[in-house]
Design a protein around this nucleic acid. Structure first.
Lengths: 207, 207, 207, 207
DNA sequence: TATGAATGAGGGTTCATTCAT
DNA sequence: CATGAATGAACCCTCATTCAT
């Protein structure tokens, strides 16, 4: 996956990467809380204990912060998804593993996920963020493929529109970022288990 | 439900509300496509075939356009929800009716729903948009109550966390606005049927 | 005195001059209360029971309303001043008559006087309002001349700077417009009497 | 006295207040020359040798500049008035000292005084500028009280309406700001002496 | 005569960004 | 590394004015 993070041509010398990460984490939280457009660079600087101008020593633009946040998240996500997909599991087990990894990713990169959910659609149009669209395509291929494999294997119902089911699963998982709070009542794994139970078995009680 | 739309003391007189509605529909589409903050009033005016300043003959601010769009949508939604809730249906039938009405509402007010999804959380903080939070509360009461009634009636599974299930249902329905296109392959009712089937029966094939 | 009022090339037909006067009086009051710049043409229209655009049937601009108000006031003032100055009175009696006429003029054209006080200095720069400066010059000539005649006649003290005294008199009289309310406790003549008493005799009690 | 200037939570840090003062002085002069409403921030910026946006680094609005100008002037004025009033002088000497201090204040804060004269009445209505009204009240108390004390002490004439006399004195002093130019022919003290002479003794020559 | 709707030129303000120190 | 100050483009909004009806 193309990752603008890799061809980073920063102003900064390579030294002190911790400060960068701190600022990035701060920025991510503010972006998630207020929205990317609504967030001022000054607000981020305030939160990071510096002046707005000082941010430009570490990053060359507000947009590049966003870029790093999003690509960092997607890189991490795909590393895990790829290893699930390479494990040679059956369709149902693959879905279970993907869902579980997704909730874990929400737990790890909550802010980034929230930002992604809200901004990705608009961002995709810009060349700089084309990788978002590519990730989307790859994502659909993985999930939809698994679902279709499951239907073929008579593990999943065949009477449902595949793309509809895919969207249903995808949305169900990721919108959780809008209410999930790390350290809350349920662990990511517990949430995954319940979600899977609903998705796979439905919420209706069986006689 | 408090509705800022009702105590509108606008510049415009009562006559000729068509132009208002036209502009409002245009604004809603642009807001939905680009995000509220990212949308300039010039863009709305362009799209409406007028100059930016002219918008202010009909509305007194960009924010008040947003307000009317959102409150208009919620008013319509609640009129329908209320009549479903007043119909005295069983829990499963109530859920089915609510889901169906929701998809119909997405069909009717697609732009407004998309805007709501993206902006409501931040907007709620402003006093002017407090009604969004109130609607949210009422919404949760309706859905969660129906689910709990269903569990008590042994119609729904008792082993699921009720709030988790509620969120699952709620999000499942509404995020559809992010991909739904009116006049597409599936009618709102067809989408509702399939969604309900997944939610109620699960996606796993039964022996 | 040049009076833009005389070469009025209005849009309006000559008919219904009462409506004009009504609007003008309304405008004068609003200008006086809020300041010329701060007054919107719409506010005047509201107060006159019409829409902003409708004013332009009667007047061709906001500025021309101001012009008519101011020139109307000055025309009236000079008619009276001129007849005082032509009466051949002694210096003290002339001053007394001018002061009394001034307070009467404040009583008659309160709003116009207030506007004049506040806006004249800036307005003078514009060619259209050059007559304000000319009036000022003529005004100074009349008062200062009378004072100097009084000094020569040993009616007024000779140890005071003449221009200082002139300004003292002028300001004393006209600022009254800032607090005077027609129909209040004191009539214009009573106010004139007391002012004159102070100005001529001073406020110190004589042994 | 309430002073909005004191609870200033400005963008600017405490350091380098000189630039602020420069800009403020510039703004005051432009406000005085053109009127507050008629002054554009672009004009102030031009005069200060910067761009309009740059002003907002130092001040958070055009209004807050006005606020600082006015409250700065009033603070200074009251410091001096208060020390006069605390000096335990007789009525006539108190009036003389107040008048003299007033002319000195006009000399020091000419622009601020001119602005005050022209804008105070309208500004008072806004909560932010309520301190103008409070100052006015305190002002009247000080002057009117002194005048009444003087009448009781048989230093001033008893046959004059006290409030009328107060307004006469007040206006007489302050309108001088409309024509006074620092560094002109007469010093503030000289002007005060002549004004006092007129006010106390009158302009009529005594046999 | 008056209205409704629009125009268009600003005006105040925000904000990402730059840069000398 | 960070600050303080400034830039400049863009934004929302206001308002006098126009004009067809």
């Amino acid at each position: 996956m193309p990752n603008s993070n890799s061809d980073r041509k920063k102003t900064a010398v390579s030294a002190a990467p911790e400060r960068r990460e701190e600022i990035l984490a701060t920025a991510a939280e503010v972006f998630a809380a207020q929205g990317y457009r609504a967030t001022t660079v000054r607000r981020i600087a305030d939160e990071a204990g510096m002046l707005a101008g000082s941010l430009y020593y570490h990053f060359d633009s507000k947009e590049s912060m966003l870029d790093e946040i999003l690509s960092g998240f997607l890189n991490d996500l795909w590393a895990r998804y790829d290893s699930v997909l390479a494990a040679g599991l059956g369709p149902r087990e693959t879905i279970e593993a993907l869902v579980t990894e997704s909730f874990r990713e929400i737990d790890r990169h909550l802010a980034a996920v929230a930002i992604y959910q809200k901004e990705a659609r608009q961002l995709q149009a810009q060349p700089r963020f084309a990788y978002l669209a590519e990730s989307q395509v790859k994502f659909e291929k993985a999930w939809l493929g698994t679902l279709e494999r499951g239907v073929a294997d008579r593990v999943f119902r065949a009477d449902l529109d595949a793309r509809l089911t895919y969207r249903f699963l995808r949305d169900t998982v990721w919108v959780a970022a809008s209410w999930y709070r790390p350290g809350g009542l349920h662990s990511p794994e517990e949430i995954a288990r319940q979600y899977l139970s609903m998705v796979l078995e439905g919420i209706t009680l069986r006689g």
